[in-house]
């Protein structure tokens, strides 16, 4: 892997400078049941296509930001500093079909 990620603070850098923070999942607002908790903790959409995700610029500005990346080509379409509040968080994933996996 050697694709470039345009860090909103530092500009275009080698992916190896960054830590991947996973695709953006929305945290439940109220106490989830075990099944919902399991879905939030362990189930990801894992799309073949554009996905929004967290990145941390470990060997750079040491800041978190969000990126939209095409998982098929590793093309990073946009990056931006995190949106400040929860209300603006992007819409959550469609609930995937869950097997009965214990969350805890």
């Amino acid at each position: 892997m050697s694709f470039l990620i345009p860090c909103p603070n530092c500009g275009s850098r080698d992916v190896n400078e960054f830590a991947y923070g996973g695709e953006i999942a929305v945290r439940p607002e109220a106490r989830p049941n075990v099944r919902e908790l399991g879905s939030y903790l362990y189930f990801r959409r894992n799309v073949a296509g554009v996905q929004r995700e967290w990145w941390f610029h470990r060997l750079g500005c040491e800041a978190w930001f969000q990126a939209e990346r095409d998982t098929r080509t590793n093309e990073v379409l946009l990056t931006e500093r995190p949106r400040a509040s929860r209300d603006e968080a992007p819409p959550g994933p469609e609930a995937p079909a869950l097997p009965d996996t214990p969350a805890v």
């Binding site: 800041a63 978190w64 509040s85």
Partner: peptide, 12 residues
């Protein structure tokens, strides 16, 4: 430290 920074970013 990354974990703290991350929650700080999430919670703003």
């Amino acid at each position: 430290s990354e974990w703290l920074e991350w929650w700080n970013a999430v919670w703003g």
